[in-house]
Design a binder for these strands. Structure first.
Lengths: 145, 145
DNA sequence: CTAATTAAAGGTATTTTTGTCCTTAATTAA
DNA sequence: TTAATTAAGGACAAAAATACCTTTAATTAG
């Protein structure tokens, strides 16, 4: 469904929302361990999410790390997909046809349509905050190996 | 959503179901042109679908090519996904967590569950025949560029 | 039987994705 | 001010997906 990059972006953001605050920032090392992702690759993805502080924030130096503001916790999950450029899922034809449309539909078009709508709804209505609250504080990301 | 390989597999099979018969086999060249896919790569995928005649059939030599039997047209689309090994879509956690389950759910688990069910239903209940009949005989695959 | 046609099979090449490493910049504490 | 810490940024490496090409095998028509 999603690329590794997107999976890591979603997991990392949810974890950061769950565990961080302005005065309790999380290091790359902690995040990567918690969500079971390769640290260096995760760093790249966190950079994307940090750009313009669009999703998460970062601070360098001792006691630095990553955190997310209360305001940004109100962002929908969809925002994360936009940042990692996997947002086209909600526009693409399921058969990969470039010109599939309402007037020139692929054979799956009208059956897939409501499913796509539900996916869009899922990522548009769920905020980072809501998801982080659903994430059990201990058991979610550990034991993922 | 799907890999290129899977998209080509679905498109090719639907096209073959729509246009071929035992005495009107389709060549690789025609198929690849019709569904707008790279011929050599498509050949590999058709080989998979042909193996053990599990989905489509092939004949070498002059007037050879690919076709599908009426019997195999009754197969669900899911069969195609199995052959190209993208069947795990219906089992995987949307966040990529290895141990996500009913008792240890990821934060999206219960919201994604019904969507996943609908996807499974879509690919299990739709047969190749049904899809090929929905595919407009002329306008579906052309103009895809 | 021979030549032509078409898919099968295998190897190779390219591109994209995923992952690593090293240096630089920022921040902090001593 | 210096040393330590942590993310940013860039170059590089490995793996996987996608795409191509060449030879072989099967089939058919003449």
């Amino acid at each position: 469904m999603f690329s590794k990059a997107t999976e890591y972006a979603l997991r990392a953001t949810i974890y950061i929302a769950q565990k961080s605050s302005v005065d309790k920032k999380l290091s790359l090392t902690e995040i990567a361990q918690a969500i079971d992702s390769p640290p260096s690759f995760t760093a790249k993805i966190l950079q994307l999410l940090t750009k313009d502080n669009s999703v998460i924030h970062s601070v360098r130096g001792p006691n630095g790390g990553f955190y997310i503001t209360e305001k940004n916790k109100q962002l929908p999950l969809k925002k994360i997909l936009e940042v990692v450029n996997e947002n086209d899922l909600f526009e693409k034809c399921i058969l990969g046809l470039k010109k599939c449309s309402e007037t020139n539909p692929c054979p799956l078009h009208f059956q897939y349509k409501p499913i796509k709508q539900e996916l869009i709804y899922l990522f548009q209505t769920n905020t980072i905050l809501e998801l982080s609250e659903k994430a059990d504080s201990e058991s979610l990301f550990i034991n993922n190996k």
